[in-house]
Design a protein around this nucleic acid. Structure first.
Length: 123
DNA sequence: TAACTGACTCGGC
DNA sequence: AGCCGAGCCAGTT
């Protein structure tokens, strides 16, 4: 039996499709590639709602299928959301496990592995 | 109920 | 080059 908190979050999921869209895009990020909050927001047509993308990531841990929130960083390639994972180093560990180099909380060669849904996700 | 707070970004100074 | 304000909008206080 699901806890009240889980049920509540589930209700939120059903109510706000924007979040689902965010997660849907995030799930399409190829392994070893990364994108930014702004890029996802821009792809969804709400360019100025990058903060909401971050908010969606905050709730991403409670939804299935799993959302690779660690592949979403800020525009500079910095792991700004690392503090929100189970442990501060989990985000970096997950990225390194996919061969994504991280140095000083920043994705190395960010521009080369940056994945922009607006230009690379063809529907 | 109003005010504050962000896993953000951009533009202006 | 770095700091500040605005716009986004759901959740929290």
């Amino acid at each position: 039996m699901a806890s009240l908190k889980q049920q509540h979050l589930k209700d939120l999921v059903n109510r706000h499709s924007f979040f689902e869209d965010v997660w849907d895009v995030a799930r399409r990020i190829p392994k070893g590639r990364v994108t930014s909050y702004g890029a996802i927001a821009n792809y969804l047509g709400t360019k100025m709602s990058a903060r909401m993308v971050g908010w969606a990531m905050n709730a991403a841990g409670y939804v299935k299928p799993k959302v690779p929130a660690h592949r979403v960083v800020n525009r500079n390639g910095m792991l700004s959301g690392k503090m929100h994972f189970a442990t501060p180093d989990l985000m970096q560990q997950l990225l390194e496990k996919e061969k994504t180099e991280v140095k000083n909380d920043k994705v190395v060669r960010f521009n080369d592995i940056f994945w922009d849904p607006a230009t690379e996700l063809i529907l």
